[in-house]
Amino acid sequence: MNSFLDRLVHGARHLAERALRGLGLSRAPDVAHEAAGDEWADGLFAHQHRSLAFKLFVPQRNTGRRRPLVLMLHGCNQNPDDFAAGTQMNRLAHAHGFLVLYPAQTRHANAHRCWNWFKPQHQQRDRGEPALLAALTRFVMSQHDVDPARVYVAGLSAGGAMADILGRAYPDIFAAVGIHSGVPAGAASDIASALGAMKAGRVGAGPRPRMPTIVFHGDADQVVHPRNGEHVVAAALAGHGGESSAGASRTQSFNGRDVTRRTYPDARGRAAVEHWLLHDGGHAWAGGSPEGSFTDPAGPDASAEMLRFFLDHPRSANTV
Rank of each mutant, 00 (worst) to 15 (best):
W117Q: 05
A36K: 10
R13E: 09
W117I: 13
T213I: 05
D219I: 07
A131C: 03
F98L: 09
E305V: 12
V215H: 01
A134V: 12
A185E: 03
F45G: 00
G160M: 07
Y264E: 02
Q121V: 14
G75D: 00
R210Y: 04
L56R: 03
F254L: 04
N318P: 12
A104W: 09
G178C: 15
L311C: 05
G269A: 01
Q124K: 13
F45A: 12
G287F: 03
P103G: 05
V233E: 01
K55P: 02
G282F: 06
L71H: 00
R65K: 09
A16T: 14
M306D: 00
P300H: 06
A104D: 06
Q143E: 13
D147H: 14
H231I: 09
S245Y: 11
A35G: 03
A220C: 12
A284R: 14
Q121F: 02
A158D: 06
Y264W: 11
L56N: 08
S3T: 14
D147V: 09
T106I: 11
M162N: 03
V31C: 11
P59G: 03
E129I: 13
A304E: 05
M89E: 07
A238C: 08
A284H: 13
L23M: 08
F118Q: 08
M141H: 14
H108A: 15
R138K: 13
T319W: 12
D38H: 11
W276I: 15
P207Q: 04
H283K: 09
D221H: 06
L5I: 15
V151C: 00
L92E: 08
P265G: 08
H217A: 05
H225K: 00
Q78A: 06
W285H: 06
A192M: 04
M1N: 08
H122G: 14
H313D: 00
V70R: 06
K55W: 10
M306E: 03
I214V: 14
F174A: 01
V232G: 06
R250K: 11
P290F: 13
H112D: 15
D296K: 08
V177L: 11
D164E: 14
L69T: 01
